[in-house]
Write a protein that binds this DNA or RNA. Structure first.
Lengths: 149, 149
DNA sequence: ACCGCGCCTGTATAAATATTCATCGAGATG
DNA sequence: CATCTCGATGAATATTTATACAGGCGCGGT
């Protein structure tokens, strides 16, 4: 690998570590300030080689980011995947899912061992969660909704 | 957030977890198989909300990837940033850098405490590394070059 | 019921990114 | 030296992604 390219990629890392860069053209302009003139095409290649990805907050090193985002807790993920609707009724909370979704969703809810739940029953597309009181049901519902934010 | 959107995003996570998706349009086609018809524009929004990024290997959750890539060891990073050229001479290894780059590069080399180095001297754009023998110099050079791969 | 207000989405389009193709220059090899 | 190969790059372009705008829909408040 040529010294030139190496140096350029080093500068790219340096720039990205300190500032937020919105686009490859933006990066190109910043490099130009350092007397490094290359085209966007070259930067596209550099960024791939360096394994940098574009995020909402500019280009970032792939490892350096903690972010929960993807590895959501299992329940949050299950809710996103299966939950179609909440149907509260007194101290009961009914969750509707697509066909076949109730069992896995109920399992995920059970796994959390919420204090509010007295028990759960899962059919094919419906999960029935029984709580101790209407108040408990409201709280549980709130928690579940929170997970969907 | 609507149940519809939630479910769709859940399916997106599910799809991406199991297969490699090259583009938003690709993802759109896969969702269509599941009776989920949305446009690329909507997926662009979904992907941002879910904090998924496009990598060489398709869209990936930001957290789930270990990859070294970015957090290179300090010396590797310094080499990329400053090293312009190797100039071997007997048991000496001269490193050329842009103006002002020698001090930080020398510091990074020192920090590694390589067995081969007898000492280092840094000017403004030149680092002189003194090794015990020509053989040691060759080995050190090899190690440094390795870090640039 | 009728607003007003926020989401959510599609359409059309702008903006950004990846790639194809050609060229140049730095080593190898005969 | 002539030639070959290969990595690096730019120019042009294809492809992909983001966004400006507008419409629709549901919901709370009057």
């Amino acid at each position: 690998m040529s010294a030139h390219k190496r140096f350029r990629q080093g500068q790219i890392l340096k720039i990205l570590a300190s500032e937020s860069v919105a686009s490859q053209d933006d990066l190109r302009r910043r490099l130009a300030h350092l007397r490094l003139r290359v085209t966007q095409a070259t930067l596209s290649r550099d960024l791939r080689e360096l394994k940098l990805v574009k995020t909402a907050a500019g280009y970032q090193p792939l490892g350096a980011i903690a972010e929960e985002a993807a590895s959501l807790p299992p329940l949050a993920r299950a809710l996103r995947e299966y939950l179609l609707d909440f149907r509260p009724a007194q101290n009961l909370l009914v969750l509707k899912t697509p066909p076949g979704g109730a069992q896995p969703l109920a399992a995920a809810v059970d796994a959390e061992r919420f204090a509010e739940t007295a028990g759960t029953i899962a059919g094919d597309d419906t999960v029935l969660i029984i709580t101790r009181s209407q108040k408990a049901r409201a709280e549980l519902q709130k928690k579940l909704e929170e997970l969907l934010k």
